[in-house]
Amino acid sequence: MAPDPAQIPDKSPGGAPPDATGRAGRAGAFSISLFLFAALMLLPPIVTLVEGEANLFGLPVIYLYLFAIWIAVVALIYLISERFAPAPDPTLVPEDAAPDA
């Protein structure tokens, strides 16, 4: 029987410090700015600049560009989530995660 989630003390709000400002704070601000940056880079008009016959290292520039931005974004998500919102103690798994016995 999974216990009532209301009864579980929240020890790890999203891996951020327990205070409400932790996650919505620094990591949150980074997340939003990264979202805006990624949207800017991956949507017209910026993305139209790389269209064309040009190649770089033998690869189409647009292909290189999109994957480079993509990889950079994922790397930044990694940095933000693992550096600014550090992992909680792995032993603190909420009880309701326990499967039905």
Binding site: G15, W70, V74, I77, S81
Partner: peptide
């Protein structure tokens, strides 16, 4: 989802899979 903390890691693992 069994643990909200997993979202944090999936946030970069899943896009990595997509790449």
């Amino acid at each position: 989802n069994v643990n909200p903390a997993h979202v944090r890691k999936a946030a970069w693992l899943f896009p990595l899979y997509l790449i």
